[in-house]
């Protein structure tokens, strides 16, 4: 693995034909064929850490593309201002999210060297959105990193306009990797266990791992929630999972 890459901000066509800002990372390894990943940023937005994730995928041989889900509300704004605006407005509508991921996946499939396989990964609110996208679009592998409100209703008083989406599970189009923290309350281990049971009942392939000593956002290296052991093992599971479903 050369770990060479190029990264840049581009515009893609998202939901409703809208032009949406996105961050693209492409490996510089010269591989003739490669898989791709749509990265769904966490609730704090299209920020520096999320862009690091895109570059990490590119450094490891995957073309990766992350749409700025808050671009419509806050074009050109700093990520924290954009996230505050999106939060006050109730968050990202599910249909818009699916359209933006679809646009990103189409863009990735059209890149030179694409093998046609596209995975999706999301963190925090993006974990739920990763599941939503995998139940709404034809994808090849999905990763849910501590996404809540898939099975359980949102907490009382939550302003985000999201509903449980476990009823979409029969439509899950690809294998699902779930990475969770045992100390997290949203999603709590009970919620992810329910999701696993539903997927078992449907015969949907999935691999869930819940890390002791970790809570929400344990992948976020710039936050006190970061848990190196869980994050390092989690990344290894991601490489193994995508290696099986996106590159073979």
């Amino acid at each position: 693995m050369s770990e060479e890459l190029t990264a840049q901000t581009i515009r893609i066509t998202g939901f409703g034909g809208d032009e949406v800002e996105a961050y693209l990372g492409v490996p510089g390894d010269g591989a003739a064929s490669r898989g791709s990943v749509v990265v769904i940023h966490h609730m704090p937005g299209y920020d520096t850490w999320s862009k690091e994730v895109v570059r990490k995928f590119a450094a490891n041989g995957y073309a990766a593309l992350m749409p700025n889900l808050y671009f419509r509300e806050a074009p050109g704004a700093s990520p924290d201002d954009a996230a505050a605006t999106a939060r006050a407005n109730g968050g990202v509508p599910d249909g818009r999210l699916v359209g933006d991921v679809a646009g990103a996946a189409d863009y990735l499939r059209a890149l030179p060297g694409s093998n046609g396989k596209v995975g999706v990964i999301g963190y925090c609110s993006g974990g739920r959105q990763s599941f939503l996208a995998a139940c709404s679009l034809q994808l090849d592998a999905a990763v849910d990193c501590y996404g809540a409100c898939i099975v359980n209703a949102p907490p009382e008083g939550m302003p985000l306009k999201v509903e449980p989406i476990v009823d979409l599970a029969p439509n899950l189009s690809c294998p699902l990797l779930g990475l969770f923290g045992a100390d997290d309350r949203y999603p709590a281990p009970e919620e992810t266990a329910k999701l696993s049971a539903v997927l078992d009942g449907l015969g949907k392939p999935h691999e869930f791992r819940t890390y002791d000593g970790a809570g929400h956002a344990f992948f976020a290296v710039d936050r006190p929630a970061y848990r190196p052991e869980a994050a390092t093992d989690g990344w290894q599971k991601i490489w193994d999972f995508y290696g099986r479903y996106l590159t073979s």
Binding site: A88, A148, P155, G157, M158, P159, Y186, H216
Partner: peptide, 9 residues
């Protein structure tokens, strides 16, 4: 965790 709870005034 993300608590999500928000008060708007």
């Amino acid at each position: 965790m993300c608590t999500y709870n928000t008060e708007n005034i």
